[in-house]
Design a protein around this nucleic acid. Structure first.
Lengths: 234, 234
DNA sequence: CTGGAATTGTAAACCAGTTCACAGAAGTTC
DNA sequence: GAACTTCTGTGAACTGGTTTACAATTCCAG
């Protein structure tokens, strides 16, 4: 492999615990794929036979109903691992994974990975930790869906995006993650129209601004506050 | 301990992998508690310092908002394990665990349990499997909340209760789990009134019946069908 | 078996968010 | 830079579910 695309499994948190020798062994089990923007990695109903390591790009993990409605569960960035990790020999995927940018990812067979992990206490512990994190994340997502209204949920999302995916600009922070209103809606469980509407109000209130189609966070404090209480309270 | 209350850790799925010797060692780390019906095991905000094994009784795990609204995440029966299991040194509990019947449970310090598990590959693997199951369960809960209406969610719940907590009677199955309309509502994410209303319609349709305050499942087939599609479709 | 507490039943008013139906703006492609 | 596609903006009509307020029933303790 050339040095441009040469990839260290080492860069994945999950694998941090492995020795160089073990990494080499694992490396032999790995396939690397390139997937074009908007193409699927896997679809609902596919067997869960691979574990994926995202090397470069952006992947959206979402649930879809037959009605066509869909909800985004996670946006995965380089270094993140997805696919069914637990030992449990579960049937088929309920989710769909689609790239939002051209992406490089590595793929290990689930059974292969599990056999490998079985011989590596530290790796099992890492998997354990990761599952715990995922669990807590989805639990708070449930909490938010049940107890917060759409403006609060959107405020929270923008707050988080501003921490994880933005750059400092004059008078605010520019969100770099390329998300349409539709995709924001899928992330907070609301319609595209509702998102447009709420963002409009937020702009009037001076909480956010926009540069063409990109969002600018203007008052992160108030956004953060809003993400707890009841939306716009008047 | 007398033979009535003597308890084999062995009966817990999670611990199946342990040898008798290991079980003995674990047993020394265990406290047994008796908790009165309706009393809490822990509350939101409590530190997550224990892992619990429910020996006898019934425990409700739920999330509550400051508004007082609450959602039930799980009903735990003897043999089930709860509390924060993953290695991740997470802060405080977001959930509340309350007994619905007088209950016996065993309690192991989380750090103790984790140290113990760290030396037991098979145990960690079991924990992983359990976390995987929990994850899948909550994922389908999210799916249901997002894509199914209240009648469908309730139908699904009744269907499941009829599989797991009912006894055969003449002309149907009697649900043995003691749940009020309020509690059914908390389980499906709806108000008490909505539950009363939907159950009423289900009774008219001949899907269910009631014996005093207890529910009887009359047509499990149609309930099951209903749990997929759009509630009452006319 | 009786009095009070908890649960169920009911219906009208209300509301957050969806649906529908377009119009305008911003990017993209050739 | 024209033609197209994708995305944003907007408002009216609608709807599933909540809220509120009470009445009726069931349960349980003494």
């Amino acid at each position: 492999m050339d040095s441009e695309t040469y990839w260290h499994l080492k860069n994945f948190n999950l694998l941090q615990a492995l020795s160089d020798e073990e990494l080499k062994r694992l490396q032999d089990m790995v396939n690397t794929d390139w997937i074009r923007r908007k193409d699927p990695v896997y679809l609902p109903g596919d067997p869960t036979e691979w574990v994926y390591f995202l090397k470069k790009g952006l992947v959206k993990l979402s649930m879809t109903a037959e009605s066509g409605k869909s909800a985004t569960v996670a946006l995965l960035k380089p270094g993140e691992v997805f696919g069914e990790l637990s030992q449990d020999e579960s049937q088929r995927s309920s989710m769909e994974a689609i790239t939002l940018k051209n992406s490089y990812l590595c793929r290990i067979s689930r059974t292969g990975f599990n056999d490998f992990a079985r011989r590596n206490k530290d790796l099992i512990l890492s998997v354990n930790k990761l599952l715990g994190l995922r669990l807590r994340k989805i639990e708070t997502a449930v909490y938010d869906m049940l107890f917060l209204d759409v403006p609060s949920r959107l405020a929270k999302l923008l707050y988080q995006l501003s921490l994880s995916d933005s750059i400092e600009i004059k008078n605010g922070r520019l969100i770099t993650m390329p998300l349409t209103h539709q995709e924001l809606g899928n992330l907070v469980g609301a319609t595209r129209e509702m998102v447009t509407n709420v963002l409009g109000r937020m702009e009037v209130e001076g909480l956010i601004g926009k540069d063409g189609r990109k969002l600018i966070i203007r008052d992160i404090r108030r956004l953060e506050a809003m993400s707890h209480g009841k939306g716009f309270q008047a």
